[in-house]
Design a binder for these strands. Structure first.
Lengths: 170, 170
DNA sequence: TCCATCCGATTGTATTTTGCAACTGGTTGC
DNA sequence: GCAACCAGTTGCAAAATACAATCGGATGGA
């Protein structure tokens, strides 16, 4: 995987690593959905990833140093997947894709709300979110002060649920 | 193409449009390499795209409203491909991918220099570049004042050639 | 006028990647 | 003891990609 690159262009190299239809969705679910186990990624996937594809993508993301895998002490068969710093720093890429998709593609109301917040919050909000991810995935102490309204992850989740509730009420 | 989406998530929808190994490279060459014709995209491609793939990608990018195609008045067989606003706004996505690739992947010196400048310049530089692209692809008047050192496109190109010259001198 | 070269593709075929469903060996909690 | 859960694996079909050759027409120079 590390040899025989098509070119040394940073965009090309990035596409060689995450330029398929699934890798970034897996990372999205880990970041925004807080999925840490194989089953969670498999069954809570909006897009219904199949298990062989998921297994393959997790393997290459591990090989690439974007994720790490650890045993779950509560269950001998469970594995916990965590983001590395390299994985956490894919958040701006995902955020830009979300902003672009929100503007130009037929995004559903409930799934668009997060993109709206990411757009409105901009790079500062992304940095705050990455700070949280470093705490939850790498065990690093928080560098930024906690926000009075809760973590970015919580705020995004809350906004998502609020849209769902509003929709159900109609 | 517009129906049967896997989900209404903006990231997923974006990946459905440009989440393959070639589409963003074509857009990269149009933006950063100023390629406007089929042959230019085909033969100046670092990654040696094959002609059927290029033809297919150009077709879907046209269908998606990311590019437009016009006849070249200087040659009856030539076609000029131009970015739409939708296409121009993919620049931040490409820039973030370039920044990430530069930091974490084995980028070559000559091709990394542009990513360095995009990283250093940040969103303001990207906005300046997008302003230039709106002028050259959409015929819009420039909103931002011209930079004394030349356009962003020129500065990136100049930096690239400077690295090549420095390398050749060694 | 002839002819090499260029133009945006298309065609055919081989290889690789993806998608789907069923299944595996083992663990856990009731 | 047994159903549900765990992280995957296997086999096969379908689709995407890669590669090389080729197409009909346009152009520019001799």
């Amino acid at each position: 995987m590390d040899d025989a690159h098509r070119s040394g262009c940073p965009i090309n190299l990035t596409l060689e690593v995450v330029g398929d239809k699934w890798s970034l969705l897996v990372i999205r679910d880990i970041i925004f959905g807080n999925r840490r186990h194989f089953r969670e990624l498999l069954t809570h996937s909006e897009e219904r990833i199949s298990s062989n594809i998921l297994a393959d993508r997790l393997k290459t993301l591990l090989d690439q140093g974007i994720l790490t895998r650890a045993d779950d002490p509560t269950h001998k068969q469970k594995a916990i997947y965590s983001l590395t710093e390299k994985g956490i720093e894919l958040l701006p890429v995902l955020a830009q894709m979300a902003v672009w998709g929100l503007k130009y593609l037929p995004v559903s109301e409930e799934l668009g709300i997060r993109a709206q917040l990411l757009d409105k919050g901009g790079p500062e909000l992304w940095a705050e979110f990455m700070d949280e991810l470093r705490a939850s995935h790498l065990g690093q102490p928080r560098r930024l002060p906690p926000h009075p309204d809760g973590s970015v992850g919580e705020r995004l989740q809350r906004a998502y649920r609020a849209v769902l509730a509003r929709r159900a009420a109609r």
